[in-house]
């Protein structure tokens, strides 16, 4: 479904990603781990098509098409979703209204009929309930005045409503208490299916106890320095990132 080859990218004239290779098949969950500043969010933003990040080399193929040719909104309408590490506030824009515009833009692209207000509200209320979100969050402005945890939950809520094919979750676990983490993980697990793939970015292996990955990759200084199965995350937890960094340095030598 997703094939990244030799990807290099820069922001503000500084190269951050130095050659990433990653293949994600439909139905799989890949975890990307790594210390702060290693380029995890950069990778997520490049996948989502942030215009401030310039791809300087390599290719990204999604469902057989060149993802880099598409603008961010086109990618989203083709089923690529990113849950933000720091969700953005949009004052004055009602959360439900925003999501309705998003969902209908996507449905239009897929040749589906737009949902009317009633069907839409039935859908979002159901999803909100599953994520144990208060209904009032639907009527508040997008992320405005939301607590850190509410913002993260809202990201997963957007994902649940939009039903993407490829979801990139950027540190969705940070800022969540254990109960919220469980609810959010259940939301993600409910969406797991043979047609859908996830790239789960996290700093801690704790999240991976709830969302069990098929593959784990360790990112360090803009490179994937190690890939493995679920056990790699546990090993990391034991030995800390220092171990990987020296290993990464070793691998480059």
């Amino acid at each position: 479904m997703l094939e990244i080859k030799g990807l290099t990218a820069k922001v503000e004239e500084k190269e951050i990603l130095h050659g990433i290779d990653l293949t994600v098949n439909a139905g799989e969950v890949h975890a990307i781990m790594g210390p702060n500043g290693s380029g995890k969010s950069t990778l997520a933003r490049v996948l989502a098509g942030h215009p401030g990040y310039e791809v300087t080399g390599g290719t990204i193929t999604y469902d057989g098409q060149d993802l880099l040719e598409l603008a961010a909104d086109e990618r989203a309408r083709k089923g690529v979703f990113m849950a933000f590490q720091y969700p953005v506030e949009i004052p004055g824009v009602n959360n439900a209204y925003f999501l309705k515009a998003a969902l209908n833009a996507t449905r239009k692209e897929q040749g589906l009929e737009e949902l009317d207000a009633i069907d839409f509200m039935t859908l979002v209320k159901g999803e909100a309930k599953r994520l144990q979100m208060d209904d009032s969050m639907l009527q508040r402005s997008v992320n405005e005045g939301f607590s850190g945890g509410e913002k993260k939950r809202n990201e997963i809520f957007h994902m649940a409503v939009l039903q993407p094919r490829l979801a990139v979750l950027d540190e969705t676990d940070s800022g969540l208490d254990i109960d919220a983490l469980r609810v959010v993980s259940e939301g993600v697990n409910a969406l797991r299916s043979p047609e859908r793939a996830f790239v789960v970015v996290t700093h801690y292996q704790r999240l991976l106890e709830y969302i069990v990955p098929d593959h784990v990759h360790v990112l360090s200084e803009g490179r994937i320095v190690r890939s493995g199965g679920r056990e790699l995350a546990l090993e990391l937890e034991d030995k800390g990132y220092g171990w990987i960094e020296s290993a990464g340095a070793g691998a480059r030598r």
Binding site: D73, A76, M82, V88, I90, A101, A102
Partner: peptide, 20 residues
Amino acid sequence: FYCASRGIAMEDAINMIVSG
């Protein structure tokens, strides 16, 4: 970018933000 990442085109996003 946040609007775009949800599939909302630039002009629609600006209209939405301005109306808000």
